[in-house]
Amino acid sequence: MSSSNDDLLTLNGVHTHIGAYHILHGVDLAVPRGELTMLLGRNGAGKTTLLRTIMGLWRASQGSVRFAGQDITPLATPQIARLNIAYVPENMGIFADLTVQENLLLAARSARHAAQMDEARLQWIFQLFPAVEKFWRHPAGKLSGGQKQMLAVARAIVEPRDLLIVDEPSKGLAPAIIDNMIDAFAQLKRGGATLLLVEQNLDFARRLGDGVAVMDNGRVVHAGRMAALAQDAALQQSLLGLSL
């Protein structure tokens, strides 16, 4: 796969094995700088494995992952995160016994205590996700599922990131909270962030996505512009078995 200088993240021929299972079969993917790329596909297509492979949580057995021109395939997960990549896993990874404030402080690498956190950025996060401010001193484990999802994203953006990777941000959320989440990602994109989102909600994908890649059986079987896929019902049906 040819990559352009405008691509912040590129995967070339990536294979991933988990134990005896061969999950990714030569994945090629390009995530352009400053765009929001949607990764779609049926359950079991390999989307989460792909995100975990990018983050070094699972090691690619073949192929390469490049970020900002650097080969990050052999790096450990903490090294990858230090390149200014944030990852929100599907299970959100919230520290239930810590307060909302403490969860954010852990992710704010430039702050040792709460007073050192970027106040203007916190106010922006509170405007995006009012529940984060409302439950600031509450244990994160007491939040609802939707509030935990907001906290997980807030934690990932508590400092500016070059790349934000989120696994199923709209899963299980009420429509009003989905609108909140869409607004948050749109604002991040306008601010110059690059985003890679795995999503099952096709309306969410249509409203936000610039580019789209569709996975099936551990491969990317379609890549293009989200708007074109959104207008092609036959292609949606053949790739995903459903329509927008």
Results as ranks from 00 to 15, higher is better:
residue 215 M to E: 06
residue 241 G to S: 14
residue 121 R to E: 13
residue 48 T to A: 04
residue 149 Q to L: 04
residue 192 G to Q: 10
residue 194 T to Y: 06
residue 211 G to Y: 15
residue 76 A to N: 10
residue 97 D to M: 02
residue 212 V to W: 01
residue 7 D to T: 02
residue 9 L to V: 04
residue 59 R to D: 01
residue 156 A to I: 06
residue 100 V to M: 00
residue 13 G to I: 04
residue 18 I to F: 12
residue 149 Q to K: 06
residue 49 T to D: 03
residue 210 D to S: 09
residue 243 S to V: 15
residue 60 A to P: 13
residue 164 L to C: 07
residue 240 L to Q: 12
residue 237 Q to F: 13
residue 55 M to N: 03
residue 52 R to L: 08
residue 162 D to S: 07
residue 130 P to F: 14
residue 93 G to N: 03
residue 155 R to D: 02
residue 72 I to L: 10
residue 64 S to C: 12
residue 50 L to N: 01
residue 11 L to V: 01
residue 94 I to Q: 10
residue 19 G to C: 05
residue 70 Q to T: 03
residue 139 P to F: 14
residue 36 L to N: 00
residue 95 F to Q: 03
residue 115 A to V: 12
residue 37 T to F: 10
residue 224 G to K: 07
residue 122 L to S: 13
residue 65 V to K: 06
residue 99 T to L: 09
residue 88 V to G: 00
residue 197 L to N: 02
residue 163 L to V: 00
residue 46 G to S: 04
residue 85 I to C: 00
residue 172 G to Y: 03
residue 61 S to P: 02
residue 29 L to C: 07
residue 10 T to K: 13
residue 154 A to F: 05
residue 200 Q to T: 11
residue 120 A to Q: 14
residue 104 L to H: 09
residue 197 L to R: 04
residue 51 L to T: 08
residue 104 L to D: 07
residue 141 G to K: 08
residue 125 I to M: 10
residue 214 V to I: 09
residue 71 D to G: 00
residue 210 D to A: 15
residue 203 D to Q: 15
residue 88 V to I: 10
residue 185 F to D: 00
residue 82 R to I: 01
residue 114 A to P: 07
residue 17 H to K: 03
residue 3 S to Y: 02
residue 99 T to D: 13
residue 216 D to M: 06
residue 240 L to C: 06
residue 158 V to C: 08
residue 167 D to Y: 05
residue 37 T to G: 13
residue 19 G to N: 11
residue 65 V to E: 00
residue 156 A to E: 14
residue 11 L to G: 04
residue 51 L to C: 03
residue 16 T to S: 05
residue 76 A to F: 08
residue 1 M to D: 03
residue 121 R to K: 12
residue 80 I to Y: 06
residue 243 S to I: 14
residue 93 G to Y: 02
residue 133 E to L: 13
residue 211 G to A: 02
residue 42 R to S: 11
residue 101 Q to K: 07
residue 231 Q to Y: 15
residue 231 Q to V: 14
residue 170 S to C: 06
residue 111 A to E: 08
